[in-house]
């Protein structure tokens, strides 16, 4: 009886989530995107310094569908999207589940600025389908969705909110701490914010800017202080990507984190991939915003602890 009561209490939030997911699909299908499904279980996740995969036999559960989706781009698919489960070991908190739902979409022949337009359109459309009008309210904060949303560089954000420069933060090895404690709480409070131009060394799978090689063409989307999405103008230089993977693998060894084999087939495909832009958006987090829920636990029927 207690379990039925607990699950029944989530009915309205789960309804909002379902409407949201349906409107996301419709948004992309109407624009001619192909919905694709790639395997959850893969032999080699992208090595990243701070993302741990869950082992599944000799292979791993995906931490993101990125590698397989880019192989589709390389094969000539121009516009693809996917809604799927991703798994990241050890991530559990008010905004984190070790198994969560990701939306990823990719476009060839463009850069990350087009993805900003997509975000503006997508979230406004989903909010509209839910009857929320031109704004969302999350935990007492009202955020207007009318485009254009604010664009701010990481450099500007640190100067404005952190009281020290990006270089100082990187030099002292406290970039992540400053980001979480000083910068993020200010981002997207009145309008959603695209935090863009990350220091090149934090670019992961993003290409560096042609005019300013100090920064990577990467952005993160924030609404009401909550990080929702990470986007890149995709790196298409396979040799450079291999160097970054090798550096991430070295970082992982130094931290005594499990090593992953390099995703060789992805690296081979990358040399054929056209200029592209891609983005990963946390579906659970978007549901938190649209259903005005404080924790990720509230927007899923079952948490790992309840199984």
């Amino acid at each position: 009886m207690d379990e039925d009561w607990r699950l029944a209490g989530k009915a309205e939030v789960l309804r909002v989530r379902a409407v949201m997911t349906r409107s996301i699909r419709r948004f992309f299908l109407d624009q001619g995107f192909l919905e694709c499904e790639t395997p959850l279980r893969i032999p080699a996740p992208a090595p990243e310094s701070y993302i741990d995969a869950v082992a599944s036999g000799e292979w791993f559960l995906q931490t993101s569908p990125e590698l397989c989706m880019k192989r589709l781009l390389a094969a000539g698919y121009p516009k693809i999207f996917q809604i799927c489960k991703c798994f990241r070991a050890g991530e559990r908190g008010a905004f984190h589940l070790p198994e969560f739902t990701m939306l990823e979409w990719y476009r060839t022949g463009t850069d990350y600025r087009t993805l900003m337009d997509d975000c503006e359109g997508l979230i406004a459309y989903a909010a509209g389908e839910l009857g929320l009008g031109g704004a969302v309210s999350w935990q007492g904060k009202r955020v207007a969705l009318l485009p254009p949303w604010e664009r701010i560089t990481v450099r500007e954000a640190f100067d404005r909110y952190a009281g020290l420069s990006v270089e100082e933060a990187l030099g002292r090895g406290c970039f992540d701490e400053i980001m979480v404690c000083k910068v993020e709480p200010h981002l997207g409070m009145e309008r959603p914010v695209f935090l863009c131009e990350y220091p090149a060394e934090l670019g992961a799978l993003a290409r560096v800017n042609a005019e300013n090689p100090e920064v990577a063409e990467r952005f993160e989307l924030y609404i009401a202080g909550l990080e929702l999405a990470n986007a890149f103008s995709e790196l298409t230089d396979a040799a450079e990507q291999r160097r970054r993977f090798e550096k991430a693998s070295r970082d992982r060894r130094l931290q005594n984190c499990p090593a992953y084999p390099l995703p060789e087939r992805f690296l081979t495909a990358l040399s054929r991939m056209p200029p592209s832009a891609g983005i990963a958006l946390g579906i659970d987090r978007l549901a938190m915003i649209l259903a005005d829920q404080a924790t990720i636990d509230a927007v899923v029927a079952f948490t790992p602890e309840s199984l």
């Binding site: 701070y50 908190g93 979480v180 993020e184 934090l202 992961a204 993160e220 990080e227």
Partner: peptide, 14 residues
Amino acid sequence: FNFVKPGKGQALYR
């Protein structure tokens, strides 16, 4: 106690 993790960054425990 809060577990936080900025995008692509390291896990932090506030």
